[in-house]
Nucleic acid binder design. Structure first.
Length: 194
DNA sequence: TTCAGGATGTACT
DNA sequence: GTACATCCTGAAC
């Protein structure tokens, strides 16, 4: 598989969010390789989006990463205990990114299960398996990603994306989750899933 | 299967 | 002091 080049991210954020479906995300850690397939994303575009941390050109210590060059990881802490992983898009100086909301395990399932529940896949309940990696906080927990990885270059060898061919089935489009505070942006159809 | 409530700490007002 | 791009638990259905 080939690592996606920086040019992949240096495009319209909505296009990137849609194209990310079906792609493989690879995480190398302690000699192990975790691979997941992307199934759900959301776009956040600072210039026009009240739900984006960098709405209206806002620059703070936290949002600085959103202005970084495309192909950078933006990781932040939410609700005091979970992390969210984003892929920075569009040219450097433009605040936009794609939030990773859901994936499915491809390689390293057992290590993913241990990171998330402290147990092997075999030990998980049916409920735990069904809700394994279907949320942004769950994905970061399983991939062992924290704010320490904020600003990481996605064209490097620690965390990167690979092409996965054309995804099967239909691409769904709808409203984003958990942004009821964002006024008119609540209704933007910027969520994509398989 | 759905729902309400709580956990928890950082960023920003 | 308030809000937050979430998740888990336990109870009701």
């Amino acid at each position: 598989m080939k690592t996606l080049p920086r040019a992949f991210y240096d495009r319209d954020t909505l296009e990137v969010a849609r194209d990310l479906l079906g792609k493989y995300l690879v995480r190398r850690i302690d000699g192990a390789e975790l691979v997941v397939r992307i199934t759900e994303t959301e776009a956040y575009i600072g210039a026009v989006d009240r739900a984006c941390h960098a709405y209206g050109g806002r620059r703070t210590a936290r949002t600085e990463t959103l202005y970084a060059k495309p192909g950078t990881a933006y990781v932040y802490l939410i609700y005091g205990m979970y992390h969210c992983l984003n892929f920075v898009t569009e040219p450097e100086g433009t605040a936009a990114a794609v939030l990773l909301r859901g994936v499915e395990a491809v390689e390293g399932t057992d290590l993913l299960a241990r990171n998330r529940f402290g147990q092997s896949w075999e030990q998980l309940t049916a409920y735990q398996r069904k809700n394994f990696l279907n949320g942004p906080g769950k994905v970061c927990k399983a991939l062992s990603l924290t704010r320490a990885h904020n600003g990481l270059d996605l064209t490097g060898g620690e965390l990167f994306l690979c092409d996965g061919g054309t995804p099967q089935g239909e691409i769904h489009v709808g409203k984003r989750i958990g942004i009821d505070y964002a006024g008119e942006a609540v209704d933007f159809p910027w969520r994509f899933w398989l």
